[in-house]
Design a protein around this nucleic acid. Structure first.
Lengths: 194, 194
DNA sequence: GTCTATACGAAGATAGAC
DNA sequence: GTCTATCTTCGTATAGAC
């Protein structure tokens, strides 16, 4: 991580994130991720000795950080701008993939491990969600929202967006996300000063 | 369907729904569903000639109908009662399974088919979501909500609940669902008369 | 009509050649 | 250090015995 990161390693993580957000965690095979990245299967286990679990964990963190960076930038202009950017990001992912891709963090959250034990991927997903919520809540408080209200609104934004993206995929339409966007924007506008 | 339904057929559908809501669609194997139902593997293909896709489709519809029946009853007492029942149902599923189970409809919505073609399971999921939304929106209109508002609120309720259930599983806590509940209840109370 | 046995492919992971 | 070849297990689906 600290030493120079090989480009193929990075490609494996990004490719895994893309496959997970389309097919889910269990249907994402190391074989296919490696093939897609142009690296041999053995290399994957050299870069990720922890196997599939480690690769998936890093993929979730990678996707989470990418969204968080974008969200942080847009939140500088206020919570409603952040909300619009957040919703717009997922909308773009849906439409640009013809509703084939969603959120990899949600995907890993709803798949129990085969052996039934709680794996590190779930922990990473929880941290990613918490990070997004913390950023949103902080911005809401900055703009005048009260303390229990800000956290509740932040959770509502993340939960509603994640749920809406899944619904959009089922019905091949952005209608759920657009409806959620209208309600959330009006809610945040009346709560915080912009 | 119309003729007498064998109990093992029913068990297979219910078992599939339970496994899907825990592990997701791709990780749910016909073998294990059959074993769990106590029926031989061959019987599954006798009852469901369409194989895994058919079984999964019926499992989604089964789960959707179960929720819809409960929701319909509780909506007779008004939209806020319906909301509480809806949230309470998912909360109970989370806590009674130690956060191992979620919503099977959401689960199938986020997994692309391996062959890339759009399958019947997704269509069933879209219909289930639409059914829940229609019931909620109808109740909201009955209690005084305007026409674009009612549909938007209904979608927000379903999306936020589904997303929150997934977040609860990731962080092994009902906090996301409880926060969403607080916000949705206050939102529906100010919008509709109860 | 029900179920056993099996065909066939693909998964995760590793051993060991280069 | 990198990659090929392989081990083992499990998946869907079916053929054919009772």
């Amino acid at each position: 991580m600290t030493e120079s990161t090989p480009p193929s390693r990075r490609q494996l993580v990004a490719g895994a994130a893309d496959m997970i957000r389309r097919r889910g965690l269990n249907a994402t095979s190391i074989r296919e991720v490696a093939k897609h990245a142009g690296t041999p299967l053995g290399s994957t286990y050299h870069y990720f000795p922890g196997g599939k679990r480690q690769l998936a964990t890093e993929a979730v963190r990678f996707a989470g950080d990418t969204v968080a960076r974008m969200l942080g930038k847009r939140l500088e202009a206020g919570p409603v701008d952040g909300l619009r950017a957040f919703l717009g990001l997922w909308r773009e992912i849906l439409t640009s993939t013809d509703f084939h891709a969603g959120c990899p963090v949600l995907a890993v959250s709803i798949e129990e491990a085969a052996d039934g034990e709680r794996h590190a991927v779930l922990t990473a997903a929880a941290e990613v969600f918490a990070g997004w919520e913390t950023m949103l809540a902080g911005s809401l408080r900055e703009y005048g929202a009260g303390s229990p209200e800000a956290e509740q609104l932040a959770t509502l934004v993340v939960a509603a967006t994640e749920g809406a993206v899944a619904m959009c995929r089922a019905q091949r339409s952005t209608q759920p996300l657009d409806r959620v966007a209208a309600q959330l924007e009006s809610l945040l506008t009346t709560t915080a000063v912009n």
